[in-house]
Nucleic acid binder design. Structure first.
Lengths: 205, 205
DNA sequence: CATATTTTGTACCGTTTCGCATTAAATTCT
DNA sequence: AGAATTTAATGCGAAACGGTACAAAATATG
């Protein structure tokens, strides 16, 4: 399913690598301020090639968002390894997020979705749909782990897995915004630690 | 200090009302996607008048952000009325926020700062500065109330007012993002309730 | 009333924007 | 080898962009 020789002239670029470069442009500038010329320069692709391969600017943007979402979900599942205590799971989630969020040149980039899709969500339905789905998928994955924690006794029976998951996500949303607002790594790590403590606090383990 | 008769032709518009209309445009479209024509149409002001009164687009945007920040700080101080229990204070903060965030035509607008300034913060230092200051001022105001709560015994001595305040803000940040992502009022209210419960949970009152 | 000063409205400028039309190049199929 | 097909590259073009020059209008001052 990989190397089906297609008929015409072969592509001189790797679609995945191109998407990654386009993603970085959107990440820094946002969707609206990223011009096709910016994207063309960053990907070393002419505008017509970009257009032919990915569609218009919004299509390309949605592609990068979808890839980012999938990468995030994979990293989340890794961090939530159920053989580790819930506390460690959450700490790993935040640690991994901060590693991504703080990687910026002039200023930290935060989260691609929260940092750049949120602003477009009001007027672009497709963006709003991806953003909404990304957030709720994220919640859902954490919720699964929370439910397991209740079953195992890591959390008391009275704990509400769905709500705890949403609050765990809330801390991440805040880290994403604050990173982009210029908060220091130390501050963000302190918030992450306190978040873990508060959410796992009811666990007497 | 109000009605100093200035020399030339008087202004035919109210600066504050104009800023409010411009703010609405930025709120829906974001800074980058809001054109001077959009702003001119919404404010019923010609572009040169806009420019003369508020400077360039970024200046105008920063003005609206600053006004929004001040309004928010005032509303926050009101909600944190120290004659009420901490629980009620937090609930009022979130209730007031949701009333603002859910007011949208097609989709909910969320928070002007988190929804539209975050994306510009990376490349526009002045926006990043206002956003950072807004977030930390907000944290600080809640922190004051948290410290009072510890003094009064609403929270245990072991509670960390600064961190609890930052986590209380985190819930707000999440509400802001989720509103714009299309979450329902019911969902957001449930998150707010759970947030209050979790943060005030250590209070045995 | 004349002058100075500020705001308003029209029109315009150079640039950038997105998207596409067209042609050249590279590969497979016959 | 030649036809068919897909991609690459150049360049165009109409529209939108932010910003400003300039003249007309409206007020205060002398």
């Amino acid at each position: 399913m990989k190397d089906e020789k297609k008929r015409g002239r072969p592509r001189a670029f790797d679609a995945k690598a191109t998407l990654a470069k386009a993603r970085d442009v959107f990440w820094d500038r946002g969707f609206a301020a990223a011009s096709l010329d910016n994207l063309s320069a960053a990907t070393n692709l002419n505008r017509p090639s970009l257009y032919g391969a990915f569609g218009d600017k919004e299509d390309l943007y949605l592609d990068t968002l979808e890839g980012y979402r999938q990468d995030g979900m994979y990293a989340l599942a890794q961090a939530l390894d159920p053989s580790l205590p819930l506390r460690d799971n959450l700490a790993r989630v935040y640690e991994g997020a901060l590693a991504v969020y703080l990687h910026g040149e002039t200023a930290a980039r935060g989260c691609l979705l929260i940092g750049t899709a949120t602003v477009e969500a009001v007027e672009r339905e497709r963006v709003r749909e991806v953003l909404g789905r990304s957030l709720s998928d994220f919640d859902g994955e954490i919720e699964k782990r929370m439910r397991l924690a209740v079953e195992r006794g890591e959390l008391p029976e009275s704990a509400d897995p769905q709500m705890l998951a949403r609050l765990a996500s809330a801390v991440m949303h805040s880290l994403a915004v604050r990173a982009r607002a210029g908060d220091s790594r130390e501050t963000l790590e302190a918030i992450a630690r306190s978040g873990v403590e508060l959410i796992c606090g009811s666990a007497r383990s």
